[in-house]
Write a protein that binds this DNA or RNA. Structure first.
Lengths: 150, 150
DNA sequence: TAGTAATAATTTGATATCTAATGATTCGAC
DNA sequence: GTCGAATCATTAGATATCAAATTATTACTA
């Protein structure tokens, strides 16, 4: 059994880059979302609230697409948000297959209360990179992400 | 309720970079790990097998650290790998708190069989970026990841 | 030596997440 | 107009994931 991987330069580069990408993502996600524990929100729940906050009411399938999750998953996350009275499900009249999600007053208050701190943490998290480096990183990520055929 | 976020340039840059980072990571992870479904392995299970394959037998806490997961989580993942006879738990003699994880013959055969295809997919996934761009991306991610104080 | 602190693994209870199957509804083609 | 394809949401069953509590063991300390 090999003690470590020895491939071509191309192979070790790709694997190494992937590891760095994943670690950076997980680390910054952990740091920037840690404050959510105080208000008992998970990252996914925050994602749903944020989507509704910034883009307005929409159906669950669209929330799923915007968050890169399955509709089954969104059903569960919305269940938990609904239990806490943070979102409301409203069956659409025009097309009864759709359920439109709305923030309740409590949900709006909550996201409004925590979003500024969230932005601040994000800015601080990325502050190690210059504006130019952030742009570079974003461009490389966009290029990488876009190129993967689903 | 605002329709979309309007912050300072610094704020929108940080938020935008974060979204691109997360999307790139999730997309390339999905594409490069899709082949695991054929051998009924999850990404986490593959991660544990790969760690043991490349670094040799080690205790669960160390596997947890290397995979950025909790020890509780590794317990579950190892339970499922053990059920399939892919890894073996061996209680340490010197310090009975430790359990050393070993790949079984079946586990070794499996990881040896799929790892080349995994590397190939990783190379292909990153092939949209030049070697220089991959190095750049890796450096930026490393800088970003390292700077976050736990 | 007794007692306390630290570490490894597990358990518990909760949420997340997927695929696949299902039910409800709408739409399109014929 | 009716039937079949497509879409939305949910359910079922499985694995993942965490924090917190627990157990077992070791190490340190007075």
């Amino acid at each position: 059994m090999p003690i470590s991987f020895h491939g071509t330069k191309t192979e070790t580069e790709a694997l190494g880059t992937y590891v760095k990408l994943v670690r950076a993502t997980e680390t910054i996600t952990a740091v920037t979302h840690r404050h959510l524990a105080r208000v008992k929100l998970t990252v996914s729940q925050f994602g749903v609230l944020e989507t509704l906050y910034h883009l307005g009411p929409m159906c669950q399938a669209e929330v799923a697409r915007k968050n890169l999750k399955s509709t089954a998953n969104i059903t569960t996350v919305v269940d938990n948000l609904e239990k806490r009275g943070l979102v409301e499900r409203i069956r659409s009249f025009e097309d009864r297959r759709y359920i439109t999600l709305h923030l309740t007053d409590a949900g709006l208050s909550l996201i409004e209360a925590i979003f500024p701190a969230h932005v601040e943490r994000m800015v601080k998290g990325f502050s190690v990179l210059t504006a130019e480096e952030q742009r570079q990183l974003g461009d490389l990520c966009k290029k990488l992400g876009m190129s993967q055929q689903a």
